[in-house]
Design a protein around this nucleic acid. Structure first.
Length: 768
DNA sequence: TAGTTTTAAGTTTTT
DNA sequence: CTTAAAACTA
């Protein structure tokens, strides 16, 4: 039946073509970085539609980040417009979509709200009465991990996550409370759908009938629960195709199991494996640099990537005096290149390990008028005023939401104190109890009663505005399996607006009313006046975003869900970000590419992080590999001599990764020579060669100089008048001179400024 | 008990 | 240095 092969297959190489045309059995595509896996997936979607006559709606493709999902949808649509009908989502957004329609099988109302980590901690601290905050956080984390591994509160395996006896009880109570409230956490978005599919054959059958093809991108980052979800979604007829690269597994800390990819052929019997080893993205020197680091890992399948691009300029290794100079270096390289017309702003990406590092680049780029955009979770949604607003909205869709209730019931103060709040929650007890109703029916002091009645009114009035424009949701609509992509939603929204539906205002009408009548707006306005914040401006920004949603219950649910699942909200904030430099964490770069990449902060303690175990070091190496392989043409690596951290300046040591790279394959640039810092600190003299990284000479020299200045050496035994005998653990620089860290035989550690030597403690001869 | 001031602690990474 | 928790005051 096949005629001449479609034109979009032309640019593919043999293996890629094989992967696209593959049918019949499960398929594992082992795709190295830059080997065109997104092209394979998107082309495959097009091919299935145009050549196999497949209904786009029966195709499901799952990714890990919203950005990847959007990009995939975009590229698939470019090849074949009908691909718009396919379902392209992140695992979590698929889970939410599933639960909105089938949550009733797990006793879940369709208008649940998704709790983020902060909400979970807040709920848990109510359960673990007067436990210290760090312990609550630990429990929250462990519960989340347990769900990653698909472990319920009664699972014997739970001890592997948390060995403490009480953990199981806490987990149980947490689950019970969450069920009473009727909300879910992130883990539930995966775990609950699996349970429903396992326990309800008829639901499973519906999904097996619906999705004939399931594809998973970045499969190396799937956790156990996500694997289970894939397994349950696959019926006997389903064609399953996963794409991954064990060298790019960077989410182990979140429960990702590389085993999933290694054991895929066992779990899906008869699976074929296709390897994509031709790299089209990067030049040979860039690929060599990336590989030389990840090659040091033990636990990997091992593969060779061939640079189809061939030769290119060598990556630049730059040594800078401090982080301000590091930012200046980036700014300079970028500006010069752009002004010369060699590149545009958007060709550039600045990568860092932790979000905190972005600040320095932001401030400098702002001053130098370098356009930039930050990719990553927006701290916008963590702000007090935004959380307040969202809590009010959450209460509107789910009046059982204890966490939201606690947050806003007495904000601004209206006489409903903690005691009253506890009383109301207590009274609500059990299932299906509306907190507002519960509060209405109990005895309260006159003051509390007046305040609480006001609060009820606020919520009810806002709800009535919503209800008024709600086209009531039919049961059919809820259980309907029809996919509704973002694009379709936008379409619908636009259409509604044309039909004269409060155009341009939408949901913001309701949000605004709520903010004003609750007094939250007024509260933050006065806060602004006192401390010169811009909380009101932030709330305004939230209103702008809300205006894009319909002013009814569904619109509100959609709004809250989008915020929980996609905190970047690019389409809402990204209007002026077309041509700008990208500031991004290493983790967030996964799946992206840039012509020119600057990897910053390559220092011990930053990247890789300090005090980590071997397997964690391997994950950091993979992270380095991911970052470096994002670069197409040019790669820059920067590290600093000193770095400010927690407000103190510390001498940095070059990242161990820099020692793993062959220096022959790099150009070096040293900007520390003329540094004023060097002049003030002559102890870092000629003998300190920053580029002599093979064999730790640089570090050893720097350390030795500091130790000499301090008059103490590592390992040395000392005696302290108050603390007794101990050993010097570390000698390092600080703003106030060398600092000595001592571990005393009693077990406790102390730090001393070495200038107090002789007064604070005497030296004792001998060593360990 | 609400709101302020003082003190301590702290940085992975994301859905 | 920034932010969260504890301690304190009105």
């Amino acid at each position: 039946m096949r005629e001449a092969s479609p034109p979009y297959l032309e640019p593919l190489n043999e293996e890629q073509k094989k992967a696209v045309l593959h049918t019949g059995k499960p398929l594992l595509i082992l795709a190295g970085a830059g080997s065109g896996k997104t092209r394979v997936i998107t082309t495959k979607i097009a091919w299935l539609i145009t050549e196999q006559g497949m209904d786009p709606r029966s195709i499901l493709a799952v990714t890990f980040t919203n950005k990847a999902a959007r990009e995939m949808a975009e590229r698939a649509r470019q090849i074949e417009p009908r691909a718009e009908g396919a379902m392209l989502r992140t695992f979590h957004s698929f889970g939410a979509w599933f639960l909105r329609r089938n949550g009733n099988f797990a006793g879940l109302n369709s208008s649940f709200v998704i709790y983020d980590d902060d909400d979970v901690i807040s709920l848990l601290s109510g359960i673990m009465e007067n436990a210290p905050k760090p312990e609550v956080k630990q429990c929250a984390h462990n519960i989340s991990r347990a769900k990653d591994y698909f472990l319920s509160a009664d699972d014997p395996q739970l001890v592997k996550i948390d060995s403490r006896k009480k953990f199981r009880g806490i987990y149980k109570r947490y689950e019970k409370r969450l069920a009473q409230i009727g909300n879910v956490d992130f883990g539930d978005l995966i775990k609950k759908p699996v349970e429903i599919l396992q326990n309800h054959v008829e639901v499973a059958k519906r999904f097996h009938d619906r999705f004939k093809v399931i594809m998973v991108d970045e499969y190396q980052d799937a956790n156990v629960a996500q694997f289970n979800l894939l397994k349950e979604l696959c019926g006997p007829e389903t064609y399953v195709c996963v794409v991954g690269d064990d060298d790019q597994s960077i989410y182990r800390f979140r429960g990702a199991e590389v085993k999933n990819i290694l054991e895929f052929p066992d779990r899906f019997s008869g699976a074929d494996i296709i390897r994509l080893e031709k790299n089209y993205r990067s030049t040979d020197p860039i690929l060599k640099t990336a590989s030389s680091v990840v090659d040091n890992n033990r636990g990997r399948l091992g593969k060779t990537l061939y640079a189809e691009k061939g030769k290119g300029t060598l990556p630049v290794l730059a040594y800078l005096p401090n982080q301000d100079e590091e930012a200046a270096f980036c700014a300079e390289k970028i500006t010069v290149s752009v002004k010369n017309g060699e590149s545009s702003w958007s060709d550039w990406a600045v990568l860092y390990r932790t979000n905190a590092q972005s600040l320095g680049f932001e401030t400098l780029f702002l001053r130098k008028s370098i356009p930039y955009r930050i990719v990553g979770s927006l701290k916008f949604y963590e702000r007090e005023e935004i959380k307040d607003a969202l809590a009010l909205l959450a209460l509107l869709v789910n009046p059982r939401d204890e966490v939201a209730f606690r947050r806003v019931a007495n904000k601004p103060a209206r006489g409903v104190g903690a005691v009253t709040i506890d009383k109301i929650i207590e009274a609500s007890g059990g299932y299906n109890s509306n907190l507002l109703e519960a509060g209405r029916g109990i005895d309260l002091s006159a003051k509390a009663r007046a305040g609480f009645d006001k609060f009820i009114k606020v919520i009810e009035e806002a709800a009535s505005i919503l209800e008024a424009s709600d086209e009531s949701m039919t049961g059919a609509e809820m259980s309907d399996n029809v996919s509704e992509t973002k694009e379709e939603k936008k379409h619908k929204r636009a259409k509604k607006e044309k039909q004269g539906l409060k155009s341009g205002e939408g949901l913001s009408v309701c949000v605004e009313k709520l903010l004003i009548s609750s007094g939250v707006a007024e509260y933050h306005r006065t806060q602004d006046e006192i401390s010169g914040n811009s909380k009101i401006a932030n709330l305004q920004e939230l209103l702008n975003t809300a205006s894009k949603y319909r002013n009814n219950r569904n619109g509100l649910l959609e709004f809250l869900e989008d915020i929980e699942l996609d905190r970047s909200m690019e389409e809402n904030f990204g209007s002026n970000t077309q041509n700008s430099v990208t500031l991004i964490t290493f983790h967030n770069t996964k799946g992206l590419e840039f012509r020119r990449v600057i990897m910053t902060g390559l220092e011990q303690g930053i990247f890789p992080r300090n005090e980590i175990k071997d397997d964690e070091l391997e994950e950091e190496r993979r992270l380095f590999y991911v970052g470096a392989t994002r670069a197409m043409d040019e790669l820059y690596l920067t590290y600093c001599m000193v770095r400010r951290m927690y407000g103190r300046t510390q001498v940095s040591q070059p990242s161990i990764f820099l020692r793993e790279i062959d220096k022959q394959g790099l150009q070096t640039e040293n900007r520390t020579e003329q540094s004023t810092y060097t002049e003030r600190r002559p102890f870092i003299g000629r003998s300190f060669n920053p580029f002599n990284l093979n064999g730790m000479t640089a570090n050893a020299t720097a350390d030795a100089v500091i130790e000499e200045r301090a008059g103490y050496k590592r390992g040395q035994r000392i005696f302290h008048d108050d603390h007794g005998f101990g050993a010097v653990m570390e000698v390092k620089e600080s703003d106030d001179g060398p600092v000595v860290r001592v571990r005393f035989d009693s077990g406790q550690e102390k730090r001393f400024l070495s200038e107090y030597q002789g007064r604070a403690y005497e030296k004792v001869s001998g060593d360990s």
